[in-house]
C-alpha cells in the first residue's frame, strides 16, 4: 500500500518535471527540472530493489552531468535565448506524432505487458553488482575506461582549451 503511494507520487513528480524540461523556455529552469526528475527516478530505482544504482544515478546524473549542463548554460549566458516560431507545421507534426506514438505504446503496454511477479528476495547490492562486473563483464569495463579517456581528450580538443595555445579573442563572460 505504502509502496503504491510512493510509486504514484514520485512517478507524477518525474513526469511533471520532464514536461517542464521540454515546455519551459528558460534552459536553466529546464536543467533544474531535469535534476528533480532524476531524483524521482532514483526513488523508482529503489522501489525496483536496486539501491546501488539509485545512489549511482544521483552521483553520476544529478551530481555530475547536470552540473556540467548548468555550467555550460550559465557561462554561455543561454537563459535569455528566445526561440522564434518560424516552423509551425513541423512543431505541430512533432507534437502530434510523439503524442500518437506515446498513446500507442502506453496502450499496448497496458494491454499486453502484465507479467507475474517473481517471488523471493533479489540480492542486488554493491557486492553482487561488483562481482558480476569484475567477472563476466571485465572486458566492457576496461573498454569503458578507455572510452572515458577518449571523451576527456575529445572534450578538451573540441572546446579548444589546450594549454600551449594562446587564445586571440575570448568570449567575455557577462552576467
Amino acid at each position: 500500500m505504502l509502496e503504491f503511494i510512493i510509486f504514484f507520487v514520485f512517478a507524477a513528480i518525474a513526469v511533471i518535471f520532464a514536461l517542464a524540461v521540454i515546455l519551459h523556455r528558460n534552459p536553466v529552469v529546464g536543467a533544474l527540472s531535469l535534476v528533480g526528475s532524476f531524483f524521482a527516478l532514483a526513488v523508482m530505482y529503489v522501489l525496483l530493489e536496486a539501491p546501488f544504482l539509485a545512489v549511482l544515478q544521483i552521483i553520476v546524473y544529478a551530481g555530475a552531468i547536470m552540473v556540467l549542463f548548468l555550467f555550460v548554460i550559465m557561462l554561455l549566458n543561454l537563459q535569455h535565448v528566445r526561440e522564434e516560431h518560424t516552423r509551425p507545421v513541423q512543431q505541430f507534426l512533432g507534437y502530434t506524432g510523439s503524442a500518437l506514438f506515446g498513446i500507442a505504446i502506453v496502450y499496448y503496454l497496458a494491454k499486453y505487458a502484465a507479467m507475474q511477479l517473481p517471488n523471493g528476495p533479489f540480492n542486488a547490492d554493491a557486492r553482487a553488482v561488483g562481482v558480476e562486473l569484475f567477472q563476466a563483464y571485465i572486458f566492457p569495463f576496461e573498454m569503458v575506461s578507455i572510452l572515458l579517456l577518449a571523451a576527456i581528450v575529445g572534450a578538451l580538443l573540441l572546446s579548444g582549451r589546450l594549454p600551449a595555445k594562446t587564445r586571440a579573442a575570448e568570449t567575455e563572460v557577462a552576467p
Partner: peptide
C-alpha cells in the same frame, strides 16, 4: 510489490516526452 508493467508504462511516458522535446524544440541544450 509493484507490478512491472507500471514501471514500463512510466518509462514509455518519459520516453515519449523526450521524443517530443527532441522534435519540437530548437534550443540545442534542451
Amino acid at each position: 510489490m509493484i507490478p512491472t508493467h507500471y514501471f514500463l508504462i512510466l518509462s514509455a511516458i518519459l520516453f515519449t516526452i523526450g521524443v517530443c522535446g527532441v522534435l519540437t524544440r530548437r534550443n540545442g541544450i534542451t
